[in-house]
């Protein structure tokens, strides 16, 4: 009985990918503003099986994503130091002012939603991302480069409600202030450029268009009409930016939804989740903690992690370990990254409680892996994060372990390089 309160017994098969899509999930809760949310690489993905990627590749791309997130902080500081005040680089000199860094925005752990753009509406499968602000899609005529995507590439010439933004408009100036965005001008037409590292970017026209989700539509939605798009976008048509900036989808639809949204990510790629805008659509079990901001990283959603428990044991980790660098919540990062002091404590306790199982070699950034070849059912310690106000996130079993086969399933957490990161 004691173990039932601190551990979960689970079928190994529930952790491994399935070839079939279980569409049953939350569709019963669907409302006008709730969208299906699918894993980019699973059998439910509208992008199809061609986009499937191995766990090792996903983890490598996840490293790139985290490097990019960390570089956002150092880039901001660099620019501020050079100019003496906060300043965003122009598109024309972005190569000088934004250091080239490893990393790509779009890792393989991303989720897809479908929106409609233009008049008549064209469906587009976009990556849903709380870690960036700009919504963009590939646009005809793809003047420089468009990657392969599932949907027909959006053609502004076939929409009755599309218009480019001119350089003289104030919105063009302000778009250049979006974190990570550079702006430019070509023949009086406003250009945007979003550069995520040394591999992923989108450059094109800043435009205004009608966008629809479910039965709701919004005129004059500002988005990037990409003419040069390169990166690990895996068949998607672009990105839906759900960050905090004034040009994010969340801010541009604030008049209707009041900057209120929620989501549920499915436990496996074989299930469907949901993304809801506006109040409602979530369970009454939800408990709230404070959403924090960091002035140097204004796009991101920060939370106040104060502790972690493993198998019902609250670990002794000084609160300052979490508070010194802060913690952001991101839909685009796969594996949580913790201060190394905190991760070391979790790993030690997890290994102790999992000592009946055989450790095996590391999987990329995951260093606590087990060979469960001889098991069909295993017992796993419950892992919980505790936030300010006593709110607890009891991680689902699918969020404690990660792997591609029974021979190598790992603790799905990793440490940062330094407690100050």
């Amino acid at each position: 009985r004691g173990e039932a309160e601190t551990h979960r017994s689970l079928l190994l098969s529930s952790l491994l990918p399935s070839a079939a899509c279980d569409k049953a999930s939350p569709t019963g809760l669907k409302t006008a503003t709730t969208l299906d949310l699918t894993h980019k690489h699973g059998p439910c993905s509208p992008l199809g099986p061609k986009s499937q990627t191995s766990p090792a590749q996903i983890l490598q791309q996840d490293k790139d994503r985290v490097n990019w997130l960390h570089s956002r902080l150092t880039t901001t500081i660099d620019v501020e130091r050079r100019s003496g005040r906060k300043k965003r680089p122009r598109l024309s000199d972005s190569a000088v002012t934004v250091p080239a860094r490893d990393g790509s925005l779009v890792s393989s752990g991303n989720f897809i939603v479908t929106v409609n753009l233009g008049t008549p509406p064209r469906p587009l499968n976009l990556i849903f991302d709380t870690g960036s602000d700009v919504t963009w899609t590939q646009c005809q005529p793809c003047a420089k480069f468009c990657h392969k995507q599932l949907d027909p590439i959006f053609d502004p010439a076939k929409s009755a409600t599309y218009s480019n933004v001119s350089c003289e408009q104030a919105v063009c100036q302000r778009y250049g202030d979006v974190p990570g965005v550079s702006r430019g001008c070509s023949a009086s037409t406003c250009l945007y450029g979003i550069q995520y590292g040394d591999k992923s970017f989108s450059v094109g026209f800043l435009a205004k268009e009608k966008i629809a989700i479910g039965r709701d539509s919004f005129d004059d939605f500002y988005f990037g009409c990409g003419q040069n798009n390169l990166g690990l976008f895996g068949g998607s048509a672009g990105l839906l930016g759900l960050g905090r900036d004034e040009f994010s989808f969340v801010s541009q639809t604030a008049s209707k939804y009041g900057k209120f949204f929620s989501y549920c990510l499915p436990s496996t790629p074989s299930n469907v989740g949901k993304l809801t805008f506006g109040k409602g659509g979530y369970s009454n079990r939800v408990k709230f903690t404070s959403l924090l901001t960091k002035p140097e990283l204004p796009s991101f959603y920060f939370v106040d992690v104060v502790g972690v428990s493993v198998g019902g044991k609250k670990l002794t980790i000084p609160a300052s370990i979490f508070s010194s660098a802060g913690t952001l919540i991101d839909s685009g990062t796969v594996i949580s990254r913790l201060p190394p002091t905190a991760y070391a404590a979790i790993r030690a306790e997890f290994r102790k409680q999992m000592s009946r199982y055989k450790l095996t070699e590391a999987l990329s950034l995951l260093d606590t892996c087990y060979d469960f070849s001889n098991f069909t059912t295993i017992s796993v310690p419950k892992v919980s994060f505790v936030f300010g106000g006593g709110v607890e996130l009891a991680v689902a079993p699918a969020g404690v372990l990660y792997g591609g086969s029974k021979k190598q399933i790992c603790l799905a957490l990793a440490g940062n390089g330094d407690d100050g990161d």
């Binding site: 960390h70 979530y282 839909s331 799905a412």
Partner: peptide, 30 residues
């Protein structure tokens, strides 16, 4: 910074009340 990734968010209702400055978690959302 530390990052709370999407694997740990799976099956949770994650609720953003940006204007109200609150973030909610609830188990068993999907």
């Amino acid at each position: 910074v530390a990052i709370l990734g999407n694997v740990q968010q799976m099956t949770q209702d994650v609720v953003y009340d940006v204007a109200g400055g609150k973030l909610g978690f609830g188990s068993g959302g999907c």
